[in-house]
């Protein structure tokens, strides 16, 4: 007899409120121990992100951005604190349960695209659909590739595509399973300014259209500025950057 993991809700959280927050973090800390010394990569991070919000995490290299993104997506476990994704406490889950949750709710875009080289563009996009057990993965994947403008290149291998095209495939893949939340790690980091802008446009457009929550780590000030909220991370501590009213209103 297996028992489903109990999902802990904090005292002030009603189920209704939990649904409002696509992602909530409480007192998160990440520490690595090197020999005798322990090093705080992140300490006391708390944040709450509403469904459909777009959020940028900015900060210098080595400030802990990527670690934070990994913890938010459940790729790694924090030393202390808890993360709720779509109301479920990921930090109480096993690796496999987190994976199952990601298959249903989460999409990813990486700086280095991370397309599987042996698979065609179409097959790369089909991958998350198949893992989530969706019907007609082939049709849905080819639709999405049409949408990102690669309808003619379905059967091309990644190495036959330019960097911008590869990232568009990766974006199609990220949105394929209609995730509730999308994590992007420097999505324009490997692209020139012009291509980067095209990719950013696509990302933001799909985000708006599908009502996906978007959490991205970026160095790109323009891209960060297009997000509704910005968090600045420095020496392992996170603070929200006050934005102007226009951005706050989402206009």
């Amino acid at each position: 007899m297996s028992v489903a993991p109990s999902t802990r809700h904090s005292s002030y959280d009603t189920p209704a409120q939990a649904q409002v927050h696509a992602l909530r973090v409480e007192s998160l800390a990440y520490r690595v121990t090197v020999g005798e010394e322990s090093l705080d990569i992140l300490s006391d991070v708390s944040m709450a992100i509403a469904a459909g919000e777009s959020v940028a995490i900015v900060g210098r290299s080595g400030s802990g951005k990527t670690t934070l993104l990994g913890l938010l997506a459940g790729l790694d476990s924090p030393t202390e604190g808890a993360v709720w994704l779509a109301g479920e406490e990921m930090t109480a889950m096993s690796e496999d349960q987190r994976a199952a949750l990601r298959a249903q709710r989460v999409g990813f875009v990486f700086q280095s695209f991370q397309l599987l080289p042996a698979l065609s563009a179409l097959e790369n996009v089909m991958l998350p659909l198949e893992l989530a057990g969706k019907d007609d993965p082939r049709e849905r994947a080819s639709d999405l590739l049409q949408r990102v403008g690669l309808g003619e290149r379905l059967n091309h291998a990644p190495r036959q595509l330019s960097g911008g095209e590869q990232q568009r495939v990766a974006i199609a893949r990220a949105f394929a399973a209609a995730p509730k939340i999308l994590f992007a790690d420097e999505p324009t980091g490997n692209l020139d300014a012009h291509t980067g802008e095209t990719v950013s446009d696509l990302l933001m457009a799909l985000n708006r259209e599908q009502g996906t929550t978007l959490v991205m780590v970026t160095h790109d000030k323009t891209l960060a500025a297009r997000c509704q909220r910005q968090f600045h991370i420095e020496a392992g501590r996170v603070s929200e950057v006050r934005l102007n009213a226009k951005a706050e209103l989402g206009l």
Binding site: A73, L75, L101, R102, V106, P128
Partner: peptide, 11 residues
């Protein structure tokens, strides 16, 4: 690594 990120379970 990619498959697991995309949500494939270990089993």
């Amino acid at each position: 690594a990619l498959l697991r990120t995309l949500g494939a379970q270990q089993s």
